[in-house]
Amino acid sequence: MIIFPLYMSGKIHSMISTIINERAKGNPSLESSTRTKLILKGIDPSNFSEKSEDDPVIIEKLLKVASDMGITLKV
């Protein structure tokens, strides 16, 4: 289980990185396909950096995405 503290900035970026890393386990081809899967779900990883605002709507979406993929994230 990965825990993201509430005060952390760039939370979305971290969550996306975690989803990609958990799913791809370092395989570049799977990293690419996981990024594509996120884009097709409406979350473009390239739009979020470590400085991105912690938008609760996107965070909620990512929690659902992670859950659907069998990855446990906790904010």
Binding site: R23, L30, S33, K37, L40, K41, G70
Partner: peptide
Amino acid sequence: EERVMERLSDLTNIT
């Protein structure tokens, strides 16, 4: 199609 493909993509890494 979107619903089915998205679920398959969630569940497996095969193409």
